[in-house]
Simulated assay, not measured.
Amino acid sequence: MLYLSNNMKPLFVFLLFCHVASTVKHSLNIFMTATSGVPNFPEFVGVAMVDEVQVGYCGSNMKTAEPKQDWVRDLMKDDPQHLQWYSLQCIGYQQFFRANIDGLKQRLNQTGGRRHILQKMDGCEWDDETGEVTGFNQYGYDGEDFLALDLQTLTWTAPKQQAFTTKLRWDADKTRLEYNKHYFIHECPDFLKKYLNYGRSFLQRTDLPSVSLLQKTPSSPVSCHATGFYPDRAMMFWRKDGEEIHEDVDHGEILPNHDGSFQMSVDLNLSSVAPEEWRRYDCVFHLSGWKDDIVTKLDQAVIRTNRVPEFPAGLVVGVVVGLLVLLVICITGLFIWRRNNNGFLPANSEDLRQH
């Protein structure tokens, strides 16, 4: 589980949670974050994710939760009470988090203007083949695990001594524990199945990626980059002579794109490989459930780079002269336009389009 620390890493890193590896598991995750003393960031943020796609959002001073997908809006229209339930949860948890973060600061004697972050991740996973359900409910404080609910024993575990007092108090609240058990084992999977039914065409689609070879400088590793694929159950690796290699290979994480698709990269260090040996390498992208892999041969001619190319001196001189001529034409046109404004009519718009 990822938590934010006080060194102020990007505050939305908590959204980038580990993906489900199984091809038959679906997930509903709710992430909540409360902050104290953090400038330019809401005091409370809540995000709902289905199969790692953001489906809802709420924040400080919002009176209602906000659907983030068209099919979620359709669901809310058909079931207005569902949106009302989420909106009430959002308002209630804002108050709950505010009270708990203030209480933690006092109990841990955390005074002054220090920044503090309290986070919650809960939800469930459902295996659509076996029917197995797994629920989870975890809290983190200032970048460290704080409390986690054990649904088997209906007790809270406290990895840090500072959380022990809270554990004892929450263990004594039997009504809340029974509600948690019912919600995460029964209600949460029911919600998830409903979302999967409404979002079937979106969540269960298959999108193949665009794959490119990228390199910053001639001495940099070559990055095989795939973007635009869905779902995120994918893998990518480098091969030599048809065999997967691990030496000098650096695998990146699967990351979300703004449109709900995903991207990933795998880098290959070629510093010890002679140019004539490059043809022996290729990059393979495999998407779960898709029979054909996307294979990209390592070819210098197709590598994309952002380095500035070196131009011949004669070409540079020619470009400079051309720019000077263009500048003279522009200046002349400017004077003509000013004369037109002093008594002459500007050129007809149709004439401008013809030129």
Rank of each mutant, 00 (worst) to 15 (best):
W126D: 00
G228V: 00
A301I: 00
F344D: 13
E187N: 10
E178G: 05
F41L: 07
C124L: 06
C330P: 00
H246T: 15
M236Y: 00
L352A: 14
F191W: 14
F136R: 05
D259T: 04
T153Y: 08
K25V: 13
S288G: 07
V45G: 02
Y183G: 00
H225K: 05
K216I: 09
F44Y: 15
I101E: 08
K216C: 08
T64S: 15
Q138R: 11
L352V: 15
E132I: 00
T166S: 08
Q263I: 03
A301H: 12
R233P: 00
H246C: 07
G228W: 02
L4R: 03
Q84Y: 06
S272T: 09
Y281M: 02
T111V: 06
Q162C: 09
L4A: 05
E276M: 10
G140C: 09
D128S: 09
S272P: 02
M76T: 04
W85L: 09
C58W: 07
Y198T: 06
L168K: 11
A48G: 13
I303K: 11
H258Y: 11
G343V: 01
V222W: 03
M8S: 10
V55R: 01
L147D: 06
D259E: 13
Y183Q: 06
I30C: 08
L287W: 00
L315A: 15
Y195C: 09
D241R: 10
R169Y: 12
L270S: 05
F229K: 02
Y179F: 12
E132T: 05
Y93G: 03
I91A: 14
I254S: 02
M49T: 08
V266S: 13
I329T: 11
D207R: 11
C124R: 01
Q119F: 12
K9H: 10
A234F: 02
L315H: 14
T64E: 15
L315E: 15
W337E: 11
K25F: 06
L75I: 04
L324Q: 12
S212H: 12
S272E: 09
A301Y: 01
W170Q: 09
F44R: 05
T33K: 05
R233D: 02
Q84G: 02
L345H: 09
I91G: 05
V273E: 08
Q54Y: 07
N7D: 14
E66I: 11
R233S: 01
L118H: 07
V47S: 12
A21E: 15
D207F: 06
D142E: 07
Y57S: 04
N180G: 05
P80Y: 10
Y281T: 00
N29Q: 15
E187S: 12
V13P: 01
V321S: 08
Y3W: 15
L214V: 07
R353H: 14
T165I: 06
V308L: 15
L4C: 06
V319R: 10
F191Q: 10
N306V: 11
D190A: 13
R107F: 04
V50M: 09
L287N: 00
R307W: 15
